[in-house]
Each structure stands twice: as C-alpha cells, then as structure tokens.
C-alpha cells in the first residue's frame, strides 16, 4: 500500500512541504479520533457504563427482578456496620500483607541473593518456572492448593514434623490440621496461595530492575567501605523505587479483588474467617439478590483500591521527578 502512495507523490517545494505537514499533522490530530473510537466504544460500553450503573444501583434497594426502591446512602451504612461485610474488608487488609508486602520483601531478598545465579543457564530455566503462576488459571491453582494445605497434604507432609519438633523443644507443639478448615490458619492459608501467585512475578521483576543499576554505584560505595547490607539500603533499594512500586500496585489490586482462589478453596469459611469483598459481592448480588448492597460494597472496593494505590504511585513519581 505504501508503494502505491510513493508512486503517486506530487512534486513540492521544501517550504510548502513543511507547511503541508503542519496542516496535515493538525488534520491527523483530529482525524486520529476515528482510530480511537472503536476502543473507546468497547471500553465505554463494557467498563465505564457498568461502572456508572454500579454507582446508581448502590443507592437502591433492588432484588434484581422487581422494581427498585431508592434508599439513599443506607447501603453504604450497611457495608460499614454489618459485621460480616466489614470483616470481609478487614480480611482483604490482611491479605495485602500476604499478596503484597511479603512477596515484595521476599522478592527483594531473593533477587539480592540470586542476582548472580539468575544470570546463568540455571537462571533462564528458573525464570520460566517461577513465572508460571502468572500463566495458570487461579481456579486450578486453588484446587491444587486445597490439597496441598489439607490434613494429609504436602505442606503438612513436608513442614509439620520439623515445625512441631522445634516447637516441642520449647515446650509447645501444634496439632496437625487442615489449614483451610482452621480458624487460625485458614486466612494465612489463603495468603500462602497469594504468596505463591505473586512471588515469582515480583522476584523476576526486581531481579531485572537490579540488573539495570549502574555497577559503578556499587564500586564507589565499596571504595567507601560499605558492606553488602549498607549497599542494599543505600543503593539497591532507592534505585528500585519504580519496580517496588509496580510490585506493590499489581499485588495490592490482586489482594483486594481476590475471588477465584477463595471461591474454590474456602468459600469464605470457616465461619466467614476468609470472607473477602469479591466473594461477598458475588454472593450478595446473585445468591441473596441484594443488588443494591452488593453494588455499594463493589463501589467501596473500587475506592479502596484507589486509596491503596495512589500513595504508591505518588511515591514512585516523586522519585522520578527528583
């Protein structure tokens, strides 16, 4: 196509070319909208419009079938006063620890230690392997983890005996149990699955980030007599500002909107100990048909994500400006 265009070009003087280009560029800036329209239509119809409707529904009492009744802000009041709903929000706060802070911190530590190892041939294979959780359906991972965390599951098989033995040394000891059925360990169990999903992503991202740091920075600090620990805090950490910000952002969104894993592994039990907003929204809207209340919780969730992410973005951007 380009060729036909080339052959049909008209001879023009240099000045008129520039002038022509400027008007053409302006025409482009207007005509370009035609290229934007399909994406905007799809996005508007299936994201923005539903989002506006979520807000609208949240002010109504509606069972999804019969006429809705305007109730003002009372659904939002419910979200923060109903113990089950509120605890779901609290649980997602705890999940942030597992999905977000732990993988980022662990990823940093692992990246620091494995930087040299991951450069080798082993590293190429390892990278492919530890990125795998990003590729598999979370539902299937949830099924696998339900067994791993079961009474006779692999996690107990590997870790129970040594941990119990250690605890017995100090006069304690812990009964073997199914993680996801335990009041104490069900939420950490779900969190462990979150670590599994996120750790590889964060580790690889941070390793790549570390590779970009100018080696001369390290050399300079070594001349100053800095040890590896001070190096880590003085050079590595500040240089990774952006990567850390990305890790935290991506993992926090995953923590707050967790659904697949909880749906498959615990259904929110035992006794709502692992109930999260995503699952609660689904149950309220489609099982209990409290569409208004579910929508209010959905909007609270959306706002919560924004509240969590804005400070991180601010932190990252501040770094970029300085």
């Amino acid at each position: 196509m380009l060729n036909t265009a080339t052959t049909s070009r008209r001879p023009l003087g240099a000045g008129s070319i520039l002038r022509g280009l400027r008007t053409l560029a302006r025409a482009d800036r207007a005509r370009g909208w035609l290229f934007l329209v399909p994406a905007l239509v799809a996005y508007g119809m299936f994201v923005l419009w539903p989002l506006a409707n979520s807000i609208k529904y949240s002010f109504y009492n509606w069972d999804g079938i019969n006429p809705a009744k305007w109730v003002g802000l009372s659904n939002y009041g419910q979200v923060f006063t109903n113990a089950t709903l509120y605890s779901a929000i609290e649980h997602s706060g705890i999940l942030i620890l597992f999905f977000s802070f732990l993988p980022t911190a662990l990823g940093l530590a692992l990246a620091a230690f494995m930087r040299s190892a991951i450069a080798g041939r082993l590293g190429t294979v390892a990278r492919v392997v530890i990125f795998l959780p990003q590729v598999v359906a979370l539902v299937a991972a949830g099924i696998a983890w339900s067994w791993l965390l079961g009474y006779d599951g692999a996690i107990n098989q590997i870790f129970y005996a040594p941990v119990d033995a250690l605890l017995k040394l100090v006069g304690l000891g812990v009964a073997q149990q199914a993680w996801l059925g335990s009041f104490k360990y069900a939420l950490p169990g779900v969190g462990l699955i979150g670590i599994w999903v996120m750790l590889g992503f964060c580790t690889v991202l941070l390793t790549v980030g570390m590779g970009k740091i100018d080696p001369s920075l390290y050399e300079a600090s070594q001349l100053d007599g800095a040890g590896p620990v001070r190096e880590f805090f003085d050079i590595t950490l500040p240089s990774l500002r952006q990567e850390i910000g990305v890790c935290l952002t991506v993992t926090m969104i995953a923590a707050l909107s967790a659904f697949d894993i909880v749906y498959i592994s615990t259904q929110g039990g035992p006794a709502n100990q692992t109930m999260v907003p995503g699952l609660e929204i689904y149950l309220l809207a489609f099982t209990n048909r409290q569409v208004g209340l579910a929508s209010a919780l959905a909007i609270v969730l959306v706002v919560l994500v924004v509240i969590c992410i804005v400070p991180i973005q601010w932190y990252v951007n501040r770094g970029n400006e300085s």
């Binding site: 539903p50 909107s257 809207a285 579910a294 959905a298 969730l301």
Partner: peptide, 17 residues
C-alpha cells in the same frame, strides 16, 4: 482508570446489560 478497576466493581451491571 480502568487499569486499577477490579472486575467485581462492574460485574453486577454487566449481567443486567
């Protein structure tokens, strides 16, 4: 804005749409 939006935030109206 859409990059941060959890699917649960719009799944209900999507059904009715």
């Amino acid at each position: 804005i859409g990059l941060t939006l959890p699917l649960e935030g719009i799944i209900i109206p999507l059904y009715y749409e």
